[in-house]
Amino acid sequence: MRPDLSITVAGIRMQNPVMTASGTFGYAQEFEPFLDLSRLGAIVVKTITRTPRVGNPPTRIVETPAGMLNAIGLQNVGLEAFIKEKLPYLRTLGPPIIVNIAGESIDDYVELASRLSDQEGISGIELNISCPNVADGLIFGCNAVLANKLIACVRQATSLPLIPKLSPNITDVVEIAQALADGGADALSLINTLIGMAVDVRSRRPKLSNVTGGLSGPAIRPVAVRMVWEVAQAVKLPLIGMGGIMTADDALEFLIAGATAVAVGTANFTSPSSAKRVIDGIKAYLIDHSVGRVTDLIGSLDLTGTTREITEWSS
């Protein structure tokens, strides 16, 4: 039996559900020595902004238990250099290219989206409304009214699929997800990093020059799976789940909880061929468990016997 790994998210057809998470895969070229890029479900590139950003001063990275904190500060080459220098290469790779964008105002997002719509070889736009490492990076991601307005405005500017990326640094993820769905989002990515902090007790100084940073890696996976599960029940849109995926089993948790696709992030740093192993592992799981299509797994969580089981008298 050859299992069918293909899925469709926001109208974007992918040969398998394994994507790369923004900011953890560079502009893909860095990974060419380590894996066959054509095998990926989709490639999501590092956040780009209208003008280049130099990013935060060092130290930008510290390791934490089963995770890491980063405060890169959205260092990137900027929109025009991306189009001129990075996109031509990305177009040749095969998998759908999803460009992640961030701005400080609705205008920024609109401008980025419309300029990218003119380019060939872009399959979708992921909107980073959840970066914890830049001033104002979170305003759209933490306010349902603003989030709704943002997505509605960008919707006018492009016909490309729009995928806002949710922040976990909020009380009610469902409220924001719903607002984004109402505003015209085609799919949702979740989650971005959790705001964290680490202190060097000898010097009594923060370990990051930005003081706080975004926590990623295995440590955040349970939070991410829970958020995907909550949103999947409340919102009809396809979800791209991410947060601490290191192995195929980790990815399967997200699919079973309700994600249509997954993204591998921090694992790309520790082993640059991680995404390939996740793809191979999902395939092996489907064969072992006689599941014909990966889509059969989506939201297949079995709640029998749990406190959340829906029984006749509870509903």
Partner: peptide
């Protein structure tokens, strides 16, 4: 401090 070592994370 490095996360990747090959130019992907922009951390170093």
């Amino acid at each position: 401090n490095m996360a990747c070592g090959f130019g992907a994370c922009m951390g170093c």
